[in-house]
Write a protein that binds this DNA or RNA. Structure first.
Lengths: 128, 128
DNA sequence: ATATCTGTATTATTTATATTAATACAGATA
DNA sequence: TATCTGTATTAATATAAATAATACAGATAT
């Protein structure tokens, strides 16, 4: 279910966050879906419980998850993320990447193509 | 000339690399332009010389700079970077960002708009 | 030629952070 | 009531970034 690389420069908890975000964004995990408990996932991935918790708590802070009174962690509704704010945070990252890509020869057409590959591949859940 | 934030999570040498890349990509620094010496920049930024050298050497490895026999570091021609390979490395980064942005409501039109803002703002040097 | 600039290299130390480890508490659930 | 859950705390370990202090040798300008 999750792909972690302990040799990567990127911290395990961040890799975990990316993995979970992707499951949410592709619609595999929908609103109110329950995530594996800290301890279970810890055993499954042979990673320390604290590391799992750090990822969960961070995702909660960002609005992707919520935790209910010792019942577990669950997927939060999209609008808890404050999508507009988040998009504005993403913009400079995009523009830095775009600038570098343009320098390397990226055309507008190719960028649009990449956009459409993404929409085609991922099954977005409209009911959310 | 350079903007560094010692409190950032991103290492100083990586911030320096980003800064230099941007100067190259916006055409402020063109092919064969000389960069400040390791020691000078070290003093100017009050950063350890080794940190500067790490940034320079890494940019050399990536093909953005070259160093000539104790004469200094200089901007390399674009094609030393192997643009096609680099673009392929950039693609997955783009798609991850695009996927998240789509989840947050990004439209194709907005992405194209961001692309055009980038081309308009930066003065790309065609003579390269 | 000589002082001074350049990159290059090496070794040690400090600092920050990620990760693991070992526990403990208290509410939720079966 | 036993066992699940999240939450919290403290300590130890590992890794990497950054600083520090030097040294060597080629390039350059005076």
């Amino acid at each position: 279910m999750f792909e972690l690389d302990v040799r990567s420069r990127k911290p395990i908890y961040e890799q975990l966050m990316d993995n979970i975000k992707e499951l949410i964004m592709t619609g595999v995990l929908t609103t109110d879906a329950k995530l594996p408990s800290v301890r279970m996932l810890s055993k499954e991935l042979t990673v320390n419980p604290n590391t799992i918790q750090k990822a969960y708590r961070e995702l909660e802070r960002e609005g992707y998850l919520y935790s209910a009174n010792r019942k577990g962690y669950f997927v939060a509704p999209v609008d808890w993320i404050k999508p507009d704010e988040k998009l504005n945070e993403l913009k400079p990252q995009f523009q830095q990447l775009i600038q570098e890509a343009i320098y390397l020869g990226l055309t507008k057409e190719q960028l649009v193509e990449w956009f459409e590959e993404t929409t085609k591949g991922g099954n977005v859940d409209d009911s959310r």
